[in-house]
Design a protein around this nucleic acid. Sequence first.
DNA 1: GACAAATGACTGCCGAGGCAGTAATATCAT
DNA 2: ATGATATTACTGCCTCGGCAGTCATTTGTC
Lengths: 170, 170
Amino acid sequence: MNRRYAIRAESRPSTQPSEEVLSVGHLMGRARASLLSRLDAELERFGLTGMQFAVLKHLADGAARTAADLSRFMQYDTGAMTRIVDRLEQRGLVRRERCRDDRRVVFLRVAPAGRAQLPRLMAVGTRVLEAHLAGFSAAEITALKEYLGRMIANGQLPPHNQPPSAGAAA
Amino acid sequence: MNRRYAIRAESRPSTQPSEEVLSVGHLMGRARASLLSRLDAELERFGLTGMQFAVLKHLADGAARTAADLSRFMQYDTGAMTRIVDRLEQRGLVRRERCRDDRRVVFLRVAPAGRAQLPRLMAVGTRVLEAHLAGFSAAEITALKEYLGRMIANGQLPPHNQPPSAGAAA
DNA sequence: GACAAATGACTGCCGAGGCAGTAATATCAT
DNA sequence: ATGATATTACTGCCTCGGCAGTCATTTGTC
């Protein structure tokens, strides 16, 4: 969870033609869309969305304890997170519990009903992922995750701030 | 563009624990979000969104000629596509042109203004992508694209339709 | 203690995508 | 030819995420 992704900044950004690099964005979008639509479809009979499931999961395995934590971890809007938690609370899957030491924070705890549902939800999520990763070796999955991790890390660096220099005025 | 992604269906879906596989979804979401937010930020001074740029690009390089083509190719809602084309047309970047043979279809053509802008837009897109792929070797980029292509292909297969069998009733 | 800045949860507003439905046109079966 | 079906573009409606602002609370500074 805390693995550092080495960024070999000294190597040039690849010498591939622009076209080839741009297609990565297209492929990422399609792969993610496929993943999400299938997940939402399978989760429909539970009355949950993929996001709601993800929130529940991260709360259950201790990745986050508050809405702010969740928003940071998932890079998600705090307002949207409030509304997602609203729904999960209405369905009795999570409970809000005001912290006594710092009365600003509201701890989110997975309610018994949520904890009971979780194994089934995890099974659905795993099934969808594995379907998309059919034919992948363990090494390939590891490589894929490493690549994505490096892309995320690269994205968090400040942009290269290449000066517009010559001829940038339209 | 027509490369077949081999799907070794005979190998088991990987013997990794569920947790590990599930994190692929999380990483994909974050990587894509990083890509898109950075792209939108850089494209803001052109008054375009990432989607609008993508549409323009696919029209320019002949990947699609109509709104329906675009929607299929990008797995995008046809209604949303109509509205995106509306904006591109308002800005004078594309032109609608009704087909004479089949009066249902409307050909989309990149207007001169759009074609003039395109190089700058492509440069922005390429820069964002390359920033996220900093430190990737050419072989790694190729592998990443191949992985994503296989995931997409897997997602288009019908779900395994695993029978609920025992104990699926909540 | 008083004030400013920061933090967390929350709310209204807006833009965008997904869905369902419509009108026009084309295709196909009979 | 006629009717059923499909396809294309397009339009409301709904939901959801992002943004900006609000309120309460905490922390830091003087």
